[in-house]
Write a protein that binds this DNA or RNA. Sequence first.
DNA 1: CGTAACTTTGAAATAGCTCAAAAATTGTGG
DNA 2: CCACAATTTTTGAGCTATTTCAAAGTTACG
Lengths: 262, 262
Amino acid sequence: MKWRAGDAPTITAPAKQTAGDTRMIERHLMKIRARDTLSAEEEQAIRGALGEVRTHPAGRTIIRAHEELSESTLLLDGILARFKDLRSGQRQVTELHVAGDFADLHSFTLKRLDHDIMTLTPCRIVTVPHDNLRRITEAHPHLTRVYWFATNLDAAVHREWEVSLGRRTAIARMAHLFCELHVRLGIVGLVEGNRYQLDLTQLELSECLGLTSVHVNRVLRELREQGAVEFRSGRVTIRDRALLERIAEFNPSYLYLEQRAR
Amino acid sequence: MKWRAGDAPTITAPAKQTAGDTRMIERHLMKIRARDTLSAEEEQAIRGALGEVRTHPAGRTIIRAHEELSESTLLLDGILARFKDLRSGQRQVTELHVAGDFADLHSFTLKRLDHDIMTLTPCRIVTVPHDNLRRITEAHPHLTRVYWFATNLDAAVHREWEVSLGRRTAIARMAHLFCELHVRLGIVGLVEGNRYQLDLTQLELSECLGLTSVHVNRVLRELREQGAVEFRSGRVTIRDRALLERIAEFNPSYLYLEQRAR
DNA sequence: CGTAACTTTGAAATAGCTCAAAAATTGTGG
DNA sequence: CCACAATTTTTGAGCTATTTCAAAGTTACG
């Protein structure tokens, strides 16, 4: 079952682990290295900044708007959603996060968030205390830019979603989201060929796309019938990537997938 | 007349001025000080980072997507729009910028932008070379956080626009934009009582709101008839702020208008 | 003062929504 | 491992917010 925000939170036993586990932040490093270089020293600085590892079941709001935050959350596994609800109960997801993403690196400078963050699937996360981030900004200018870049990348995703929400048709929005996630999950090694796991309900997809779940259902059928992409039991199978990207008018340049000079 | 992107750019004679002009960046400082404190030394570092002053007429695309950038643009006067066009010619504005905003501080870490930026009114800007920003990040950790915060604030605005575009009705979107600009222009001293200058066409408003200009026209009439707000000849007059905010479901917390600890 | 840009209005069309219910799937306790 | 309960998906039928198309006013400026 998937829980809505507002349900009583279940206490999650924080599964403390050795934060230095070499493989743990592998996907995070893959994401950084898709765009920049990291020195051994910088990698060490990142590892040294890690706090506790925790696991959360699906459907938990793990960060609430307006709460003062003293750490950021790095997603190791699972899918997180940033979202806002209107009084009517309508929800808009403003970004999805995948393994390797910071869910709320922006809380380092904002101190509190203007939105909630919830788990859409079971998630493993590691905390990064702001004090440690501050030390990084004082000692590692390049690494600071790397993380500043990461928050600017979130903003670029927000902009592309604004274009989808404001101007793309329902089918193009859906196609665009599948394209984006294909790229983002590919970067961190979570795509096998033309397939990737995406354990969201059609309601959750609709909350990303500014549509109703009923219409998402119809749009998924249309995409399937056109032979572009299939979404079934939490798995996306891209049948015709060129077609899908044409429907979406997808241009990955907003994901900044090129190496930058230090 | 307002020019569309794609028109031949007119050469703008860069009006070089003494970059140190004390008042010049006043609005920029007001914006920062609405959320943080600045030491005299930091203020000096900002002034020392300024490059050339330029003026552009309305309707010029002053920064193009994908171009490599070596400086950022601080808006001194006027209104700028970040936008993306679809193949159909439909345009989505992803953020409006007002005096005191950096239009593209994110280009410091991104190196190139995923969107164009154009002047919607005549604009005066001052450039800030990235080399100077880099020097700031190496010598002024707090000021670095202030500017990182500024880009995170842009992202917060993007998120709120995603909510508008995805879930708000046309009338609420329009009302919300008027509320947002009332606050943002107020911060930099550009609101007189219940009125502020906003020299945009209804087409430009529609490009912000994911609507057609025809529907913007009808929505403006509705807001006027309800007695909430009037928009006439480039001027917004708020007749009933409480009503306007109720229509918009406006909550300014996403604008982070509180002082933060250094 | 003429012309381009912008605003306003009307009428018809439609993409996506709402409401409702059935079918399929998934998770759970026994 | 089964059977139930809950969740999720699917489909149908009617509805509506917003778009489209078209044309008439209005404003602004060279």
